[in-house]
């Protein structure tokens, strides 16, 4: 689980082009959207593709992403339970 979280942080930084941020800067429970990392709805769409491409999880409704993408912690939990690759 810890490895998945670190892997996830690296991927988030990469796909969202968060140039000035390192893996150490992101805490497991930091909110990704709003006040935390400051991600927005376009980032959410990017994360949906990441889930599909790397973990084989398809989300068909952007609204589903809201609870899953709260933090790295919630994302990792969801991925661990639902991944197909």
């Amino acid at each position: 689980m810890e490895d998945l979280k670190i892997e996830l942080k690296g991927k988030i930084i990469e796909v969202l082009n968060l140039e000035d941020i390192t893996i150490e800067d992101i805490q497991d429970n930091d909110p990704l959207f709003g006040d935390g990392l400051g991600l927005d709805s376009i980032d959410a769409l990017e994360l949906i593709v990441l889930m599909d491409k790397d973990y084989g999880i398809k989300l068909s409704d952007p609204k589903e992403g809201r609870s899953i993408f709260q933090s790295v912690e919630t994302m990792a939990t969801y991925i661990a339970a639902n991944r197909t690759k």
Binding site: I42, E46, V49, D52
Partner: peptide, 9 residues
């Protein structure tokens, strides 16, 4: 497959 919106926008 696996297309993301940023470059489209």
């Amino acid at each position: 497959s696996y297309l993301t919106p940023t470059s489209f926008i």
